[in-house]
Amino acid sequence: MTTEPVAGAGFDPAFIPGLTAPTATPTTSAPDEPETAAPDQPTAAAEPPEPQEPEASADEDGAEEDSAEEAATEAAEPAPDGPVFEASDRRAKIVADHQGVRLSLDEEACEFGWAEIAAVESESPRFGKRYTITVHTPDRRWYPIEIEASSRSRFKEWDEQLDAVLDAYFEDGD
């Protein structure tokens, strides 16, 4: 007897807006189907093998064309000359630019467009070297990330860069 999982953030991290789904290879019976179909093809190989091969290559070419179009689209959209804030350590990274704010910790990542952000808060500790940035969303959720600085003097530099990005791209609702 199989039970359906309960939907919610406690069971599915993808339930939280802004988080990306983990990339995993699906384990279904679809890969087994071509193996069972392979013995059937030699019996009918005299009739339609040529049309099947061009269709498969057309699918591959289409996938290559799609990825080439996406790369061309990304390259065609030049980044504005506005400010960019980037901070990272061995585990965590934050990037704030014209697109929004992207946070990543180890292999987990989330992305927020400027329209999804209610506030961005930074905090420098009194002691220590961990700089904390928290992204607040309109639905009263917050996403903190800590970046370990090489020295405490980086805090002032990071605050200035983050303020420049927020001044340029973040539109306060007031």
Rank of each mutant, 00 (worst) to 15 (best):
S104P: 04
A168I: 05
F85M: 08
E123L: 02
A96W: 02
A38W: 12
P83L: 07
P80Q: 01
R90E: 15
R130Q: 06
Q52T: 12
T132M: 03
T2N: 11
A44W: 13
P138T: 01
E64G: 12
L19M: 13
Q41T: 11
D106H: 11
E77Y: 07
F155W: 11
R130G: 06
R141K: 11
L103I: 03
D81G: 11
I147K: 00
V6N: 08
V135R: 00
E70V: 07
T43G: 14
A30W: 06
E60P: 00
T132V: 07
R141S: 10
A164N: 07
L103P: 01
R102P: 03
W114H: 01
S151D: 14
T36L: 13
P49N: 09
D61L: 14
E35D: 13
A76G: 03
D106I: 04
S29N: 10
Y143W: 04
A37P: 00
R130N: 07
A149Y: 10
R154F: 13
F170P: 01
D106A: 10
H136P: 02
A24T: 11
Q161F: 05
K129M: 06
H98C: 06
E60M: 07
V135L: 01
A75M: 06
P78D: 10
R90M: 13
E148P: 00
P144K: 05
V120S: 01
H136M: 06
E4D: 13
E69A: 11
E74I: 05
E4V: 10
D139R: 08
E55T: 11
A7E: 08
A119I: 05
I133T: 03
P31Y: 05
A14L: 04
T3V: 10
V120C: 04
I16S: 10
M1E: 14
Q161R: 14
V95N: 04
R152V: 15
P17G: 02
T23G: 12
F11V: 07
R154M: 12
L162Q: 05
A45R: 07
R152F: 11
S122M: 06
A76W: 01
Y143M: 05
V165W: 06
P144N: 03
E148F: 08
E107H: 13
P49I: 10
E146V: 05
